[in-house]
Design a binder for these strands. Structure first.
Lengths: 340, 340
DNA sequence: TTGTACGCGTTATCAA
DNA sequence: TTGATAACGCGTACAA
């Protein structure tokens, strides 16, 4: 069970009775090559439990085989999901991930990130909100020949590949169902507009109302900032209205939890007295009573795709800038119901 | 502004008119060395903006200046805090961090982690619960000459440095205050024992009861597994007892949130009808109503210290195994009060 | 106090 | 379709 001596490409080559170059070929799926040769090598690799040394691959290949994930003040669960997805792609593509937390409000943020990327010799970086919307950042990075891929940027750049989620469509459907369930006064709590998704979600709301032939009542739309506190404050505003809404859509789950709190305080029961829907499928949505109905982006998959886009770009394939789009999933739980 | 050709140690050596070995010496702070020589080299390094290639350092040297953080199925916020702390130490000590999520239940977990560490040429790894309690893992790692530091291990090994938190003491104080506030029937929800902290917290509970001259009523102690669902189930059990507790301590916040749900379902008001206290200061503790009183470990600081312990060990200093201990902080919020 | 030559484990070049 | 050998950028003996 103990692997004492290090097994290198040479070990494999000897065992398979071929040259190291041949082993390298099967590793990198180079063609053409005789099937029997490839099988011999594969067999040796398996028996030896051989894994290429990333450092050697990087050194010889003139790449660092490292990509960076840059993030700032944003929810832990979101970053973890992103990270998990990126890591999955990395391990499959033979890459290492370097994490770089930072403060998006810092004056020197652009220089910091550029330096980080240069100093670590990164092959590229992945940007997530709100950083991917930072004016000048992407330009500075590309100017220094650092590849970039954005996740959920507010606007899609021509030069930078990105992956995003069709938030608008998902919200539109969800609000549509609320309307069908008899709700006509539906409150909406907006998120911080440094996240592109905020506008998307708002548009989904408005679009659903319009499609149903309903008026858009601006007094039912409140500005939050994605925190529990802001959600609670907006909830209080909404629920203290003379003609209070029978349903509230919050642009994320933290704010929806805030609405729960505001309802709880004045004795309103969810979902009987008030329907609430959130967005994100954050942990809290499964840790409150009643369980929060929400919308879930396939964040891990999105992040994984973003990483693959970046790695492909590094490898020279897929030089074209691509934009991938995923659709969100509606999670029907316990916090909303028919209105009579 | 654009740096076109790559600058290597040779570039620096040429510019400073010394040999590469000399540059290498100043990079690694080797002595003795003439001050004027060092200055020349430093000057060249700065002017060229030279940064050593991590891949080359790892491949050629004994040290890679990379450490690993290995974690498995555990809460996002916990991992993020750990990560932030480790990263802080790393950036200050000139280290890189490689993240490695894995499945602690996997059959091949030990081999996987050893391979990961060898393969990435890591100088050492940081283990967190429940992985740091995995039988045989630490042994396998040290056998392969990979330094290890544990965070909150169930038992402190002689050979492996660790940092931990005095959970027992904190819980003891908190339960003591509940008792002073008039609670005599206090429920306790245990956590999963693959986390060393579970036992610590239970001991704190029992110790507080004993100190106050109270009996330990085993029927008031329920086994949870750190999830919301288990907390809710245990809460239901506890609250349906003939002589139900007036206060419940849950070994983490997710389970405390579960208790909130169980109370909510049967119309019990927190904190008026029931006091609830959790542990961890997880995001959910600030996203429910009323705000959850809880106990907070200085996770970031602990992680930072763990990383420094590891890096020191790598550098040869501090070869002795050390065990650092931190104390937890009691957060008094809204979910507990006097009992009459 | 400083320099030379070789090795680390891969990929790339050019033959065979 | 395969193989010998030179890079890749740095650390480490061993010399000077």
């Amino acid at each position: 069970m103990t692997v004492l001596k290090k097994v290198t490409i040479t070990t494999v080559a000897n065992k398979a009775e071929v040259s190291v170059k041949t082993v390298s070929r099967v590793l990198n799926r180079e063609t053409p090559m005789r099937d029997s040769t490839r099988d011999k090598v594969l067999k040796a690799i398996n028996e030896l439990g051989y894994k290429p040394s990333l450092a050697a691959v990087a050194l010889a290949g003139r790449q660092s085989k490292m990509i960076g994930l840059v993030y700032s003040n944003i929810s832990a669960s979101y970053v973890m999901s992103i990270q998990t997805g990126v890591l999955k792609a990395c391990s499959e593509e033979g890459c290492n991930l370097i994490i770089h937390p930072c403060d998006s409000e810092s004056k020197s943020i652009i220089t910091d990130i550029v330096n980080f990327a240069k100093n670590s010799h990164l092959d590229g970086v992945i940007l997530i909100p709100p950083l991917c919307n930072k004016k000048g950042l992407v330009e500075a990075l590309t100017e220094h020949e650092i590849n970039v891929v954005n996740i959920s940027p507010a606007i899609k750049s021509e030069k930078v590949p990105s992956v995003c989620c069709e938030d608008k469509a998902a919200v539109e459907v969800m609000i549509g169902e609320l309307i069908e369930a008899g709700h006509s006064e539906i409150g909406f709590i907006k998120g911080d507009f440094s996240h592109g998704a905020s506008l998307e979600r708002l548009m989904g709301y408005k679009s659903a109302l319009l499609k149903a032939g309903l008026q858009i009542n601006e007094s039912l739309i409140k500005q939050g900032n994605f925190t529990f506190e802001s959600g609670k404050a907006c909830g209080q505003d909404l629920l203290s209205m003379a003609n209070r809404p029978t349903a509230i859509f919050a642009s994320n789950d933290y704010m929806a939890a805030g609405v729960f709190a505001s309802a709880y305080d004045i004795g309103l029961k969810i979902p009987n007295d008030l329907s609430v829907v959130g967005f994100d499928d954050a942990p809290v949505s499964r840790q409150i009573c009643p369980l929060l109905s929400t919308i879930k982006q396939p964040i891990e998959k999105m992040a994984e795709s973003a990483a693959r886009l970046l790695i492909a770009k590094n490898k020279g394939r897929g030089n074209v800038s691509r934009h991938l789009s995923f659709s969100a999933e509606l999670l029907y739980r316990e916090s909303h119901k028919q209105h009579h």
